[in-house]
Design a protein around this nucleic acid. Structure first.
Length: 376
RNA sequence: GGGGAAGUCGCAUAGUGGCAAUUGCAACAGACUGUAAAUCUGUCCUCUUCGGAGUUCGGUGGUUCGAGUCCACCCUUCCCCA
C-alpha cells in the first residue's frame, strides 16, 4: 500500500491524496461505508460501486469471527471473494466491541473476553488472535486491537487503558510481521491512537504509534459522546504529530459537519454507521439539511427526494413516495434512504477534495457547514 | 316472531364499587457517530404558568360518601332458533 500526498490546503491542514492498494486506488479524503458483517446493510455491490461510488468499505472482525466464522471466509478465499466486493476493504479489529459490548466483555491481562451477542457463548480475543483472524478475512487494511475508551473517562482510567492498548499494539505488530498475507496481496496494519480527551495522553500515544512506521494511522476513541470542541481539539493535536506522508483515519466519525471539520484538521479517512443506520430510521442528509422522512409534511411533496443528490434514487423517487414507504414499513424505504445517504456522504468528501485541490477548502467549508445542520 | 350476547379515549382490547382507566395497533414527534439498532424514546380526551385544572366508558334517570362497574328504561349492534 502506498499513499501519495497530492496537495495540502494553504489556509488549513486539509489534504488531498491518493491511497493505492492491491484492490484499487482511493482518492482521499474518503468516506468508507460500514458493512459490519461484510455487507453494507441493504445495499448490493453493484449499487455501492456504480451509484454510490464507494471506493472502500469496512467490515468487522468480531462479527465475521462469530458468523460465518473464519474457516468459511478462508475457504471462500478471503473476504473479497466471499462478498464479491472487488474494491479495497478494511476490517475493524473488535476494539469498538470492547467499548460497545461493555456489559458482556471483560478486559484481561491477555486481551479481552466477550460473550457472543448472538448466543451468549464466551470467546477470548488477544492481539495475536485478532491479527490471525484479520489475516484470514483478508482485508487490505487491518486494524490493531485496542480499547475504545468510553466518555466520560477519568484520567487514570484513560492512562491505564492507553498502556494496555500500546502493549496490545506491540503484540499485534509482532504477530503481523511473523507471517505474511494468505491470499497473494498485501495487507497494511494501522495502529490506533487513544488517550480519550487528554492532550498529553494523545501526544504520548501518537509518539508511540509512529514508532511502528505503519502505512497509516488511526485516531480512535472519539465521537463517543464528548463535546465537539474536544473532538476537534484532539484531532488537531494528533494530526500535528502523525506523519504527513501517511493517511490518517478518524474512526467512527461522523456527522457531515464532523467530517468537514476533520478534513480541515488533516484527516484523510472516515467511516460511520450514521448514513446507513439513520437512513434505515428515516433520516436523510442533504446539502440543504436533514429530513425526517416519516414526518407528515412530506406526505404530499411530489418533488424528487433530493434535487442536488448524485444517486439515481434521488431523481427516481419522490419524497411523498419515500414517506409512504417508511410509514408502510417497506424494506425499499430503508434501501432508498441508505443509498441516498451514502451517495451524499461520498459526494461530500468528493466535493471537499475538489476544493482542497482548488485551494479554497476552508472558505468553501464555512459557506456550507451551517446548512448541513438545518432541519428541513 | 322467540331466545341470547354486547356497546370503554381513531381501531381493537382490559377493567365486575375507590387515582382519566390496561394492553396492542394506528397516528404524531424525537434520538441514533470504528452497527448487540429495519432499533430505541416520548406524546397520544381538553386546557395548562407542567404544579395541576376540567370533562369522560351508547343515552337518560336512579342507588351510593363514591359508578365504566349496581338498578330501571331507552337507543344501537351482533349471534342463535323460527
Amino acid at each position: 500500500m502506498n499513499y501519495e500526498l497530492i496537495h495540502t490546503s494553504s489556509d488549513c491542514k486539509a489534504r488531498a491524496g491518493l491511497l493505492r492498494t492491491s484492490h484499487g486506488d482511493i482518492p482521499t479524503p474518503v468516506f468508507m461505508p460500514v458493512g459490519t458483517v461484510g455487507s453494507v446493510k441493504g445495499i448490493g455491490v453493484n449499487t455501492l460501486i456504480d451509484d454510490i461510488h464507494a471506493k472502500i468499505i469496512l467490515a468487522n472482525t468480531y462479527h465475521l469471527y462469530l458468523r460465518p466464522g473464519c474457516d468459511i471466509i478462508h475457504k471462500a478465499g478471503g473476504i473479497h471473494k466471499f462478498n464479491s466486493f472487488p474494491l479495497p476493504m478494511l476490517t475493524d479489529s473488535g476494539g469498538f466491541q470492547v467499548y460497545s459490548l461493555g456489559k458482556i466483555r471483560k478486559i484481561t491481562p491477555q486481551g479481552c473476553t466477550f460473550q457472543s451477542h448472538i448466543d451468549g457463548s464466551r470467546h477470548e480475543f488477544t492481539p495475536e488472535k485478532v491479527i490471525d483472524i484479520q489475516r484470514q478475512i483478508g482485508a487490505d487494511i487491518i486494524m490493531a486491537f485496542d480499547e475504545c475508551t468510553p466518555y466520560p473517562c477519568d484520567y487514570k482510567y484513560a492512562k491505564n487503558s492507553l498502556y494496555i492498548t500500546h502493549h496490545w499494539l506491540q503484540r499485534c505488530f509482532e504477530r503481523f510481521s511473523s507471517y505474511g498475507p494468505l491470499y497473494g496481496y498485501s495487507q497494511s496494519l494501522f495502529p490506533i491512537v487513544q488517550g480519550s480527551v487528554y492532550e498529553d495522553l494523545r501526544i504520548e500515544s501518537c509518539r508511540e504509534v509512529i514508532k511502528y512506521n505503519a502505512d497509516g494511522y488511526a485516531i480512535g476513541g472519539l465521537s463517543v459522546g464528548e463535546p465537539h470542541e474536544d473532538m476537534y481539539r484532539i484531532i488537531n493535536t494528533c494530526t500535528d504529530i502523525l506523519p504527513y506522508d501517511k493517511p490518517r483515519y478518524l474512526m467512527g466519525v461522523g456527522t457531515p459537519q464532523n467530517i468537514l471539520e476533520g478534513i480541515e484538521r488533516g484527516i484523510d479517512m472516515f467511516d460511520c454507521v450514521m448514513p446507513t443506520r439513520n437512513g434505515r430510521n428515516a433520516m436523510l442528509f442533504t446539502w440543504k439539511g436533514t429530513m425526517n422522512m416519516r414526518n407528515k409534511k412530506w406526505a404530499d411533496d411530489f418533488s424528487p427526494i433530493d434535487p442536488d443528490g448524485k444517486s439515481i434514487v434521488d431523481r427516481l423517487y419522490t419524497r411523498a413516495y419515500l414517506r409512504h414507504l417508511f410509514v408502510s414499513g417497506e424494506l425499499l424505504a430503508m434501501q432508498i434512504a441508505s443509498v441516498h445517504n451514502l451517495a451524499f456522504y461520498l459526494d461530500l468528501v468528493t466535493v471537499a477534495r475538489k476544493h482542497i485541490l482548488e485551494g479554497d477548502y476552508k472558505q468553501w467549508k464555512s459557506t456550507v457547514i451551517d446548512k448541513l445542520s438545518v432541519r428541513l
